[in-house]
Design a binder for these strands. Sequence first.
DNA 1: TGGATGTTCTGAAGCGCTTCAGTCACACTC
DNA 2: GAGTGTGACTGAAGCGCTTCAGAACATCCA
Lengths: 347, 347
Amino acid sequence: MDRHRKPTLDTVASAVGVSRATVSNAYNRPDQLSAALRERILETAASLGYAGPDPVARSLATRHSATVGVMLDRPLSSDPAVSIVLDGLASTVDGHDHGLVLMPGGVDGGPRPETVARAQADVVVAYSLPDHAPALDVVRARGLPLVVIDQPVLPDTARVEVDDVGGARLAATHLRDLGHTRFGVLAFGLHRDGATGPVPTDRLPDAAFRVTRDRLTGYLDVIGEAPVWECAGSRRDLGRAGARELLSRTPRPTALLCASDELAFGALQAARDLGLRVPTDVSVVGFDDVPEAGHAEPPLTTVRQPLAEKGRRAGELALRLLTGARPGEPARLPVSLVDRHSAGVLT
Amino acid sequence: MDRHRKPTLDTVASAVGVSRATVSNAYNRPDQLSAALRERILETAASLGYAGPDPVARSLATRHSATVGVMLDRPLSSDPAVSIVLDGLASTVDGHDHGLVLMPGGVDGGPRPETVARAQADVVVAYSLPDHAPALDVVRARGLPLVVIDQPVLPDTARVEVDDVGGARLAATHLRDLGHTRFGVLAFGLHRDGATGPVPTDRLPDAAFRVTRDRLTGYLDVIGEAPVWECAGSRRDLGRAGARELLSRTPRPTALLCASDELAFGALQAARDLGLRVPTDVSVVGFDDVPEAGHAEPPLTTVRQPLAEKGRRAGELALRLLTGARPGEPARLPVSLVDRHSAGVLT
DNA sequence: TGGATGTTCTGAAGCGCTTCAGTCACACTC
DNA sequence: GAGTGTGACTGAAGCGCTTCAGAACATCCA
């Protein structure tokens, strides 16, 4: 026997003395042949070192690859929230015998177009991509079904999101109820220009990212005007720098609203840098409720969004789209305030 | 035109009036046809809504899918170290125009066998799997090249690892030089039984996991005998519980050696729980140097391993294997001690 | 001017599998 | 004993692409 060439369906078929169709059925439709024959086929296959139908060939023949692609806006490692969402997504599709191909983002907020063009997937989910990510065009060109998590908002497209406005309001209201009146806010990027710094009011209204816009809206709805510092990314160091700025102003804000926990961790650090005590001197509230939030010093008061659930819902939507279902209304998941120890009454 | 059926190579070929081979060449071997014709083909393709050769069909014809699979021992979200390694891996293979299919672990330390059987990949990398993960058998049965990160140690298999023994020695030596003599160690699981608790000495010698074994060896080489607490997973809560136990003994250890940062974070918390100050009352040293280590309270002294580099190297190895290269010697990456503030002189 | 050399394009054979319309043999039923 | 199922298997078409050995024609140099 030729030990160099991998065995195929044929190899097994002729070894057993049946047709290829029958061997195929042995794997895919056990009810189509007698149990005895099936047993014989499987045994022969094993002894031949045949590991089952080749996935690629099967995909071509069936015209689906049983795989969902996921596009991220950034590298995987930057924010734990991403991992959690991804986990929910992965386990959901895996549970339905689908694979997951990962397309992490590069510098320009999304995977490279070539990566997407090459990906073997029946459907793709986009995680919090910028509005005009080139990757999205490729998905459209290929005619693949799409589900987006958080953003961008695309017409006639399946989506799962959380109530960002409501969540932000929760955070702001909590602080206001605690007696705070002088606020500072640490926001995500408003535009794709990677700007970091204080936000002039004219930059506000037309922010390009839905999530940025919504959280900001929620904050400002409640607290009225306030200095906003824009951070190009959800990164601790950017939060630290921004918070340090905000906290150095006179009069100093007594409370900081942060668009993510990661930013809030940075703010906690900035407070330490300046010798301020949290929450005695300044209150800090985050957004996301990543696991670390509960372990911060002090434990972070934050807005919880169901991250794993987001991934799961996206997975279910993707799978549903594969059955030909229409996108339907966006799934909107609830948020809630987790009151820990980084926000306190104004003394 | 039939708007329901996606255009294929043929569609384009007959629209332009050339053979399929030529259209294929337009995409894959521009040098095989005149620039003018190529241009015309690409234009027609675009106007027809043809998004380029179907990846699956191409894979079948070329007999490789340009994809590397990665198997994890656990869910993605549990430890930031995983994300970082994955990131290095993903960007490396993406840079070489290969995709990444993700196979996260379930409960039994590895992806489901069916998942691996179905995955469309030319090569797979296994991240820190248990010695006898079923997933590994499937990889072997399919005859796919394999590169393992950390463990298990398999004969004739490409591998990338760090100097775990050396790293552990570094940590232990540092503590000893600081004057400590009473130690406690927080180790990973020694066996696949998910045991958590104090380790009887007879469980030690034959630990099933290389990483566990090596780090433990490194510690004990330097400090001699010491109480060891086994944690079934690299989880903060397990570290906290274990450390609380260890720190409640009389005489109390003055220094804790932890097999991972995640465990060490738990230990820090346990110290707080008990009203002990770090490093005044007790020193804590971790292993990994995840980003959070620098932000812990106090910043964690730990052994740094080049996580991203590990992923990158694994990616390069995987790609090399695809060219038919032999596995070669395991790549061993260096570790170093990062001296921050969680370990101090014994007072 | 004629063989050698290129350049550009084509035909046809696969890649390894699924699937559907049958064929065949063997029970049943009345 | 004719009709009707039914269970078990097969033949062949096809999924959408790549690739390789040429064919057809132009170009070049001696």
